[in-house]
Amino acid sequence: MDRFLSIEAFVRVAETSSFAEAARQLGVTGSVITHRIQQLERFLDAPLFHRSTRHVRLSDVGEAFYRDCAEVVGRVNELTDQMRELRATPTGRLRIQMLPGFALGHFGASLAEFNRRYPGIQLDVIVNDRVVDPIEEGFDVAFQIFPAISESLIERRLFTVRRLFCAAPSYVGEHGAPQHPRDLLAHRTALYSGYPSRNRWTMTRGGDAVEIELPGIIRSNSVHLLHDYALTGGGIVCLPTLVASTSLLQGALVPILADYALSPLSFAAVYPETQRQGLKVKALVEFLAEQVSPEPAWDVPLIERGWVK
């Protein structure tokens, strides 16, 4: 029995709750994974999983065994990457999930530089704004604005995602600009549907906080659709500055209630603990951190104008 391969198979099954998914991620057949787990269980003389036709979950022994095994796998991967790093640049395929707001407006512009710096890395980029468990869905790293959904995931925050309400000058000219957050209730609003606060919005100015229920006449999971809607003069929208900055600076959109602040979000890289020091993941995460440090380029002129803080 190759103990490391068996432990690696055990960790991957524990993380994905699936023998088939573990096999896919490790590039072997399902029977190989089954055989490695069975060998490990015989060696330990204890079952590691409770299996049924629909579920795979850790046994009590498996629960106790998992964390140490995950650390072993992570440490071996770290040492392997360190040795590779001494000899060569990172190589191989990296499967990532990228938030649309960043992918469509900013990430593409950085890809050429990343390719030049790391020619051996091929990127498989899936663009959507779902909150995912990278382990279960086979991503090496996911970039998102919501917290990691599992304690077994590492979260590396890269930059602050600021938001503000805005509208086209034509809309403001026809309907006027709200002077207080509650004035938004009298306007046509289009809002992103994925925020965890749902219809409840909290806006602060100084030490005062205003809470309002703002369902919106339009709700969408696409901030780019909301951006296009605002440009037509359709209504007031709330957009992340990474999407709205250019239109604001060009005057195609104007800020609404800029003296009130919405709570910021964090754009973060989320990846499995076993990838903590993965060379390719580390290269991409550090590259993006370098690109947006210390403040994202799209926010600097907005901060200077006092539109966001």
Rank of each mutant, 00 (worst) to 15 (best):
S59V: 04
V28R: 08
I96F: 04
I96Y: 01
G62I: 06
H55Q: 09
R67L: 10
A46M: 02
L44Q: 05
L26T: 06
P47S: 08
L40D: 00
V56I: 15
Y66P: 02
R36M: 02
E21W: 05
Q39Y: 10
A46D: 00
R87D: 02
H50T: 14
R36Q: 10
R24M: 13
Q25S: 08
R75G: 06
L40Q: 02
L40P: 00
C69K: 04
R57A: 08
E71S: 08
S18M: 07
R57K: 05
G74D: 03
T91Q: 13
R93C: 06
E41S: 05
A88F: 06
L86Q: 14
S31D: 12
L44M: 13
L40R: 04
R84A: 11
A70V: 07
Q38I: 09
F43M: 13
R54S: 13
V73Y: 03
M83I: 15
V72N: 00
A20H: 10
E85T: 14
R57H: 08
F43P: 00
L94M: 08
E63Y: 02
R87W: 03
R51Y: 13
F19M: 09
L58R: 08
A20F: 12
V61Q: 05
E41Q: 11
A46W: 00
S18E: 07
R51V: 15
V32Y: 09
L26I: 10
R95F: 05
E21I: 15
V61A: 12
L86T: 13
D60E: 14
G92M: 04
R67K: 10
H55W: 06
R42F: 07
I37H: 04
E41M: 05
R95D: 00
I96H: 01
G92R: 03
L26G: 06
A23L: 11
L58F: 12
F19V: 15
R36K: 10
G74F: 03
A64C: 05
D81M: 03
V73W: 01
N77H: 12
F43Y: 11
T29P: 01
V61G: 01
R24C: 11
G74L: 01
A23C: 11
D68N: 12
T91H: 12
D68Y: 05
E85G: 15
E85N: 13
Q39P: 00
R24S: 14
E63L: 14
G92A: 06
D68I: 09
P47C: 06
A88M: 10
D68A: 15
V61P: 00
S52G: 12
T89Y: 08
E71K: 14
E78P: 03
G27V: 11
T34G: 13
Q82H: 13
R87S: 09
S31C: 03
G74N: 01
T29V: 11
R87K: 09
P47H: 04
D60P: 01
L48Q: 04
T80L: 15
A23Q: 05
A70P: 01
H35A: 14
V73E: 02
L48S: 06
F49D: 03
